[in-house]
Amino acid sequence: MRPVGAAGFSVFDIDDRIQASILACMRFSVFILFVFVSALAAQAQPTPDLGPESELPSVDDLDTLPELEIEEGAGTVADGSRDLEVLDALFEQLAISGDPQTTEAIANEIQKIWLKSGSDTVDVLMQRASKAMQADDHGLALDLLDVIVTLKPDFAEGWNRRATVFYMRQDYGSSLADIERTLALEPRHWGALSGLAIIQRRLGVEDRALDSFRQALKIHPGLENARTAVEELELEEQGEPI
């Protein structure tokens, strides 16, 4: 039986409302940052000095991506509702896992489910897009991913991969837009959250970057790059040299 409060609704409903509010705030923040980046592009301003993050973007920055090579049969969906139940259980385990090897194994299982598109055509296109990304052929990767998100707009990993390619091309406005779509479909996507944080940091919005990195770590405590970034940003916030 679901516990019911005095007003006639359950405490689970309250939790759902809180989660919905958090997601709405997160999406609004992404939207505001997207508008900010778009305004900079429209004014044709020179690229800002990005300080220690000024190296050219690389896919290595986003080590939270699922493996670029999709495993044989990874895209087959036997039961979507079953996958959701399994995901929920895996995320619960991931949040409390203290063993690095166990954490990595749980994260890999989640990523395998994320790669299930439910479409043989999309699976083939994802494989080709992954190879294009590995070869730094961003144009081809974008062409393929454009088709993927058109054919399967509810496939979060398609949006996440395209956001990654836009990031590598330093098209941060487009990357932010695709990150928003990714998080709308899967709010627990730590890779999208990490990408958001990295872009926020590159744009000099350190307070928001710190919040985004912390959210990613809350979901996946084993993200070492995110943990390092949090430590550096916290030192900066305190006015201490890194």
Rank of each mutant, 00 (worst) to 15 (best):
G195I: 03
V86A: 10
P241A: 07
I22V: 14
R2E: 15
S54Q: 13
A209T: 06
D16F: 06
D99A: 08
G222C: 04
E224V: 12
Q215W: 07
F155G: 03
R2A: 15
G191H: 05
W114K: 07
P52I: 07
D211V: 10
Q93D: 15
E104K: 15
A44Q: 12
Q93F: 09
G5R: 13
S38H: 05
R227G: 12
S97M: 03
Y167G: 05
D154P: 00
A135G: 04
E72Y: 04
S175K: 05
Q200L: 14
I179T: 11
D120N: 06
D88F: 10
Q111M: 14
K116P: 00
E231I: 10
G80L: 10
L40S: 04
E85G: 15
S97E: 11
L217T: 11
D154F: 02
D136L: 11
G173L: 05
L23H: 01
G204D: 09
S21W: 04
I22F: 09
A105F: 01
D154S: 09
A163E: 02
G80E: 12
A177D: 08
I198Q: 08
R27M: 13
K116M: 04
K152H: 02
I179V: 14
L68S: 05
L140S: 09
D137M: 01
G158W: 00
V122Y: 03
R181K: 13
P100F: 07
I96Q: 13
I18K: 06
A229Y: 07
G173C: 03
I199P: 13
A216H: 09
M1P: 12
I32N: 04
A156M: 11
A107L: 12
R169A: 04
W114Q: 10
H220P: 00
R27V: 11
I70N: 06
A41D: 12
T103F: 04
E69Y: 06
V37K: 08
L185C: 02
T47M: 10
S10Q: 06
S175N: 05
D60Y: 09
L193Y: 07
S21A: 15
T182Q: 05
R181C: 07
E72G: 02
S54R: 14
D13W: 05
Q127N: 13
N225F: 09
Q127K: 13
W190D: 14
L223V: 13
R17L: 14
L144R: 00
L40M: 10
L235V: 02
A20Q: 13
N225L: 14
G204P: 06
W114D: 11
A209G: 07
I14F: 11
T164Y: 01
V77M: 04
A39R: 10
D123A: 07
S10E: 06
Q93A: 14
E234H: 06
D79G: 04
E67D: 13
T182I: 09
M168H: 02
A6F: 15
F36K: 11
L94N: 06
D120F: 05
A226N: 08
Q215R: 15
D143G: 00
F91W: 12
E109W: 02
A197L: 07
L90P: 06
A209H: 05
P66H: 08
E240S: 08
P46H: 05
D13L: 01
N108P: 00
A7N: 14
A156I: 02
L33N: 01
R208I: 04
G75F: 05
R208Q: 12
